[in-house]
Simulated scan of single mutants.
Amino acid sequence: TVRGLAPRLRAAARIVIGDPFSRYVQLLLALSRARDLVVVDDGTATVEFLAQLARGERLVRWHRRGGRRGPRELLLAPVSAAARRRLTPGEGNPRIEVFSAMPVDAAPEGLTLTRNTLAWTRARFGPPRLTGGADLVGTSLVETGVVDEDRYREAVHALVRAHGVTRYFAHRRESAAKLRHLTDGTGLEVVRPDLPLELIARRGPTGRTLLSFPSTVVHTLPLALAGTGVRIAVLDIDPQWLTGHASPRAQGFLSGVTSSARAAHRLTSVPLNP
């Protein structure tokens, strides 16, 4: 695939990428001579990517433990370092633009930030019909080894009891076994969206209350559902829920996601005390 793309990459004047942490994307960037590089990403990883660029650090996903690197990481380290240099604004480097709905506090000087307001989504879909119940947005924090699965299941059961949650929008990485455990005794309807959740929620039907664990959607759903009357609440993660495999940065990162969402979109918080 890389060999087949190489001639087109070398000839392209502008390259648009979605995940700057991807080793595959980083390898493709090494083959590019484009004068314009555009990162299009509404994920929470965008905030970490820009902060790492501003600090001159190597590009590492927030949930990785770091420390000693394995053979694969050592082999790909030169590729990652070259991609970081290419994505850092400076003389001789491409013009860098980041198009994102995420709030950004730190970014390298010379980088262009363009805010995604989800205006197209609002114009194209909805407004949704609202149901009387509450919907819960799931997360893959268990699958990535950040949050203990038993504590997560307890929290979901408690939210069903306290808020009358009837539907659970599963993250694409959530395991079928975990989802079966979540439905046991709760009557939850598990929905695996075949489109981005912003489009699903905008098309409806949508619960009058949307509860979400710390994730991208606490920043994108308020934009997509603006003016519809849907109340969006973000769920704080207790530090005691973190596993022994969680990155030392995990709690700070998750807290930053919720606090920035509350500040940017005036979201309410729901404590998790199952």
Score class of each variant (00 low, 15 high):
7 P>W: 09
10 R>I: 01
11 A>L: 08
13 A>P: 00
14 R>K: 13
18 G>Y: 11
21 F>V: 04
22 S>Y: 03
26 Q>R: 12
29 L>F: 01
32 S>L: 01
36 D>H: 12
39 V>C: 00
40 V>T: 08
43 G>K: 02
45 A>Q: 12
50 L>T: 03
53 L>D: 00
54 A>R: 11
65 R>H: 15
74 L>Q: 12
76 L>W: 14
78 P>E: 02
78 P>S: 07
82 A>F: 09
82 A>R: 15
85 R>C: 00
87 L>V: 02
88 T>H: 03
91 E>M: 07
93 N>V: 00
95 R>N: 00
100 S>I: 03
101 A>W: 05
104 V>F: 09
105 D>G: 15
112 T>K: 07
112 T>L: 11
115 R>L: 11
116 N>D: 15
123 A>H: 07
123 A>W: 02
123 A>P: 04
125 F>S: 07
125 F>D: 09
127 P>Y: 07
128 P>Q: 05
131 T>P: 02
133 G>D: 13
135 D>P: 03
136 L>C: 06
142 V>C: 08
142 V>K: 08
144 T>L: 15
149 E>S: 15
151 R>W: 11
159 L>V: 10
162 A>Y: 01
168 Y>E: 04
169 F>I: 03
174 E>K: 11
175 S>G: 13
176 A>Y: 01
182 L>N: 06
182 L>Y: 06
188 L>P: 04
189 E>N: 03
193 P>E: 05
196 P>R: 05
203 R>W: 01
204 G>T: 06
205 P>M: 09
207 G>A: 10
214 P>D: 06
215 S>R: 10
216 T>P: 03
217 V>N: 09
221 L>I: 04
229 G>P: 07
234 V>G: 13
237 I>L: 14
237 I>A: 06
238 D>H: 14
239 P>N: 07
241 W>A: 14
243 T>K: 05
246 A>E: 04
248 P>L: 08
248 P>Q: 11
257 V>C: 06
264 A>G: 03
266 R>N: 14
270 V>F: 08
271 P>K: 08
272 L>D: 02
